[in-house]
Computed example of a mutant assay.
Amino acid sequence: MKKKIKRRRWGKYALIALLLLAIGGGTYLYLFTKSLTNAVNTMHQPLDRNVSAKRTEAVTLEKRDPFSVLLLGVDKREHDTGRSDTIIVLTVNPNKNSIEMLSIPRDTRTIIAGKGTEDKINHAYAFGGVEMAINTVEHFLDIPIDYYVQVNMEGFKDIIDAVGGITVDNDLDFTAGGVHFAKGSVTLNGADALKYSRMRYDDPRGDFGRQLRQRQILEGIMKEGASVSSLTSFDEIFTSLGNNVKTNLTFDQMIDLQKNYKGVQNQIVQNQIKGTGTKIDGIYYYLVPEAEKLALHNLLKEHLEL
């Protein structure tokens, strides 16, 4: 099932940011740029490879090539390697001005690349970090993964507190971690947002419901991060991002994205994997039929113009 997601226009926030920079003068601009550069350098974590084995040549963002990104929301707690509880594949096509978004349930049963055994797809990160997670998703969908963005879900509370909290539209009345989340508009601090995002057992949608709440939190962070009040605390925000986000995208590549891929966010199509839940040897798995995987492969490969 597909659903087009409407995105807010961010032009007014850009104008407000420029106005504040002009009022603050050169000192503000210098501190802003320095803080941003430090954050990006901290976030940058390259892969051992330069190009996916499923491509013949590397993507060039300067040439507006279609590309793919793997978003990993890692639930990593103290003394724990962590698992990628949120797995989202994005394919971006500037020629079609669109993004295809595919959320992969964390319990999806598949072959773990590099181990040769079938297991839950989110275990790939626990076994071999980002590299194994990327290779496993590539094998599952049979498409190249060009870039990745890893977010530490535990660290989300620092980012949310840095932007002054967020507001989400909650569609399910529930209690988690001793906190009651009423249906409707809910304002969350960092600690409560983490509890809100992790709940799934009391949600009839299971993992799909949790994925929805995690996307709400991401959108809330983006909205608050673009506000006037957040711009005055940019150093705390950038520090939180640097500590909790890792990516193989470089600063120059981020600039290329901003220049060459404008408009793609105006049409984001969300895709949901069709499958069935079952238990094997007492362990719950989400099973995806081969026909469904082939259909998703064809959709994403066509969108990547491969």
Score class of each variant (00 low, 15 high):
V137D: 08
L90S: 07
D65F: 14
T136R: 01
E62Y: 11
E118H: 10
V74E: 06
V151K: 10
D142W: 15
N122C: 09
I99Y: 06
G116C: 11
S98L: 00
Y125D: 02
E62I: 14
S84E: 10
F127G: 03
D142R: 15
D142T: 09
T110D: 08
S84H: 01
Y148G: 08
L71G: 06
G128S: 00
T117L: 10
Y125M: 00
R64K: 15
V92C: 02
T81F: 01
E138G: 02
Y148K: 00
I104R: 04
E62G: 12
V130W: 09
Y148A: 13
A126S: 08
P105F: 00
L72F: 13
I145R: 09
K63H: 07
Y125N: 11
K76G: 13
T117W: 07
D75Q: 07
L72A: 00
F67N: 06
D80M: 01
S103C: 02
E100I: 12
T117D: 13
D80G: 01
E78W: 04
D119E: 08
P144V: 15
R64A: 12
P144E: 06
I121R: 04
G128N: 12
V151D: 10
I143Y: 13
G116M: 08
K115C: 05
H123Y: 10
E62H: 01
D80P: 00
R83Q: 11
F67T: 00
L90C: 06
I99H: 09
A133Q: 12
Y148R: 08
V89I: 02
R106C: 05
T86G: 04
I145L: 09
L72Q: 14
E131L: 15
I145F: 11
I88V: 04
I87C: 11
V130E: 13
D142S: 15
D146L: 09
R106Y: 04
L71Q: 10
A133F: 03
R77N: 08
T136F: 12
T91F: 03
R77D: 06
S84F: 04
I112A: 07
L102Q: 05
P144F: 12
M132C: 02
E100Q: 14
N95F: 03
F140C: 15
V130H: 07
V69L: 09
G116H: 13
I143K: 14
T136Q: 05
I145V: 15
R77H: 10
H139M: 15
T91Y: 04
G73C: 02
P66M: 03
D142P: 06
L141E: 14
P94D: 05
V74L: 10
E78D: 12
H123N: 10
N93V: 01
K115A: 03
I134T: 13
L71V: 08
K63F: 13
K96P: 01
A58Q: 13
G82K: 00
A113S: 07
A124I: 10
H123D: 11
L61N: 09
H139P: 07
D107E: 07
V130G: 04
I111T: 10
H79E: 11
G73T: 15
V137F: 14
A124N: 10
T136S: 07
S68T: 09
P94W: 01
L72Y: 14
V69E: 12
G116D: 03
D65M: 06
